[in-house]
């Protein structure tokens, strides 16, 4: 249910699905599920949000390095975090990946 999908071709893993591989042009890009766990690659704490997220501020947006793949995913968090912290997917809400510390 919570599994993330990663798309791979020509050695590039990404959570973004493409029609064709930008390297070789193939239209059959392999797809696999990866673990929900990862570590904080980098992050920011957003104090000035766009109007639709005003009720959440301040909040963290983190780039999570997923375990077992070179792909990363952008996530929202509410806890204080630092680069390298271990995190896991908590839930998917309104299209957003919400992560929490392990």
């Amino acid at each position: 249910m919570k599994k993330l999908k990663v798309y791979s071709c020509c050695g590039h893993d990404t959570v973004v699905k493409r029609v064709y591989c930008p390297s070789c042009g193939a239209n059959e890009i392999s797809e696999r599920e990866v673990e929900d766990k990862g570590s904080i690659y980098s992050f920011t704490k957003i104090h000035v949000p766009p109007s639709e997220f005003a009720h959440l501020a301040p909040y963290y947006v983190a780039l999570v390095q997923l375990d077992g793949t070179s792909a990363k995913v952008t996530a929202r968090m509410t806890e204080d975090i630092a680069i390298g912290d271990q995190v896991e997917l908590d839930k998917v809400e309104d299209g957003a990946y919400l992560y929490k510390s392990v």
Binding site: P50, L56, A62, A96
Partner: peptide, 24 residues
């Protein structure tokens, strides 16, 4: 139409994420 926009990322947010990694 991306999970990233839904996460609440903004333009200054992107460059904040980049800056923290650059410092690291």
């Amino acid at each position: 139409d991306s999970s990233e926009k839904s996460a609440g990322l903004t333009f200054p947010g992107f460059f904040g994420v980049l800056a923290n990694r650059y410092f690291h």
